[in-house]
């Protein structure tokens, strides 16, 4: 580095590296919780991965089924109960109305950041080419059918199917 000002530094990489168009990177999320605060991590990261051109899969299982169940997906809740991170006095958290209030507050914050609600977010992910899968065992346990699930869910598959599907993927369990 010189101290003279005149010659501006010549960039070595002047074109951003957008990577190979045919990258084989693959990401999978297992969404196993159905609360509002546990739905978003999978959705946000899946969406980010898609924006990076990465093949992305989400497998919804157990309570995560609520995220793609048409009856519940628009009405996920957040509860401060047993969650010390909210910094509420623990004794107050089971009181009636606290969950409703906390859910309302979280939705408001998300809205202020222009984060879409769950159904819209899933649509966004599907439009961006993401793959949504429902867990067969959970569907059977909860006595659901394909008609109960968000339309963009590609299929109801077994754990084995999913494991085959995500060969080579970076996988996150949420």
């Amino acid at each position: 580095m010189t101290t003279t000002e005149k010659a501006p530094e010549q960039a070595t990489a002047v074109v951003p590296d957008f990577g190979e168009d045919e990258s084989d990177r693959k990401i999978a999320f297992v969404a196993s919780k159905g609360t509002l605060d546990m739905a978003y991590p999978a959705l946000v990261m899946a969406n980010a991965a898609l924006g990076e051109g990465i093949e992305t899969h989400i497998f919804f299982t157990f309570w995560g089924m609520d995220i793609i169940n048409k009856k519940t997906m628009g009405d996920l809740k957040f509860t401060p109960m047993a969650n010390p991170a909210t910094h509420m006095p623990a004794a107050l958290t089971p009181l009636p109305g606290v969950t409703t209030m906390a859910t309302h507050q979280m939705r408001k914050q998300l809205e202020e950041l222009d984060v879409p609600d769950v159904p819209e977010f899933l649509q966004l992910i599907a439009d961006a080419g993401g793959h949504l899968w429902a867990c067969k065992m959970s569907v059977d346990m909860m006595k659901l059918t394909e008609d109960d699930l968000f339309d963009e869910v590609e299929g109801i598959i077994s754990a084995t199917d999913f494991i085959e599907l995500i060969e080579g993927a970076q996988t996150m369990f949420i």
Binding site: D21, G53, A128
Partner: peptide, 14 residues
């Protein structure tokens, strides 16, 4: 969104 992925493949936002 679908359209944007077609126009600017893979990494539309960037």
């Amino acid at each position: 969104t679908k359209e944007l992925f077609k126009l600017f493949p893979k990494k539309p936002a960037k």
